Simulated assay, not measured.
Amino acid sequence: MLKKRNTLVAGLFNLICPGLGYLYIGKLNFALGLPLLILFSIGVFTWSKFIFYPWGYSFILIVIIAIQITSTVVVCVMAYRSGETKLKSYNKWYIYVGYVMLSTILGNELISNRDKIFGYDSFRVVSKSMLNTLIPGDLIVSNTWKYKVRKPERGALIVFRYPKNPETKYVMRAIGLPNEVIKIANGKVFINNEELDEAYLDPNCNQSLSLQNPGEYYIPDHSYFVMGDNRDKSNDSRFWGFVPEENILGSVEYIWFSIDPTTGFINERTGKIVN
């Protein structure tokens, strides 16, 4: 059966689902190759750790959008020039539906497991426990492979599963390392009896540290003592204990962008490296 492929339909199909437009015009190799090209591009930029540079995340999105737009233009040109062509055995509506469903399922799996497959993740800050290093509305990019090959250093910002509810993810600072003794007294933190220099703290958020569960804490092996930078209002290891090593999900690399719940987009925080 000879039939001309509709140019607009081909373009629309490709916008709805990358590769579907090519399946519609009978180009199976392109239909299978386009999703693989997008996947390969993501892999190259993430496995090379380019994504962990400021603006890296945004650049990857721009590249993917550019591939999608270019492929849509190309499929429209190919459909326009094809004339009447013989329909392939897979030019059936139910094949198109199956292609979209399979692409959606695989895409969702990749997104859901990006921390394991690509080594990165993103999280939105919702609490005030890390003021003013991180504020509510910050969207941070995390390296989820970093602590698979090394241990967190003191002062590192880490993403971890809350020990009392592993479904909840927290971002705090690693203060005490395994087998150390933490002491909180007179508004100061001591590690093995040596005062800890915490230049990253904002004095305005730390006016009553001496009132927040002073005492000594011995950190077990393979565990960490974490604290928020907003010591006055941080629900951290002082109240619920230590973070097991296996609960640590990754590091905090930078702020992708920030949106204040009341005032909107905060330009000066976009691409900001935090430490």
Rank of each mutant, 00 (worst) to 15 (best):
V73G: 05
V63S: 01
G56K: 11
P166R: 13
L131G: 03
F123N: 09
Y22S: 12
L87K: 06
M172K: 13
I266E: 05
Y24C: 01
A156T: 08
D236V: 07
S258P: 08
D115H: 10
Y96R: 02
N29F: 01
Y99V: 10
A79R: 11
K188F: 05
F45Y: 12
P163L: 00
I105H: 06
E153H: 13
L39Y: 12
N193D: 15
L177E: 02
K164Q: 11
D236I: 01
G21C: 03
V73I: 15
K128D: 14
W240N: 05
G271M: 05
G241P: 03
S127A: 14
D236Y: 03
P178E: 04
I95H: 14
G98D: 03
N113Y: 14
S208E: 14
V189H: 02
L110Y: 10
V149I: 14
F239L: 10
I255M: 01
Y224W: 04
R154C: 10
W240C: 09
P214F: 13
F13N: 10
G33D: 07
W145A: 10
G250P: 00
L106A: 13
W55S: 13
D138T: 07
R173D: 02
E253D: 13
R269D: 05
L28P: 00
P18G: 05
I25A: 00
G26Q: 05
S223F: 01
F265N: 07
L196D: 01
C76I: 11
I105T: 09
V141P: 01
V181Q: 04
Y53Q: 13
D229F: 01
Y80I: 11
S234Q: 06
Q212P: 08
Q207L: 05
C17M: 01
E246T: 12
G21E: 07
P152W: 00
T263G: 05
V171G: 11
S89T: 10
S142M: 02
Y99A: 00
L8W: 03
N206H: 10
V100G: 06
K233D: 11
G83C: 09
N267L: 12
Y147P: 15
E253G: 03
F225Q: 00
G33T: 11
G176L: 12
Y80W: 07
L23R: 04
E194Q: 10
I60W: 02
I38C: 13
Y22I: 04
I191A: 08
M172W: 02
I16M: 10
I16T: 11
S89V: 14
M78P: 01
M227D: 09
Y96Q: 03
F30K: 05
K4A: 12
G11D: 03
V126R: 11
V126Y: 01
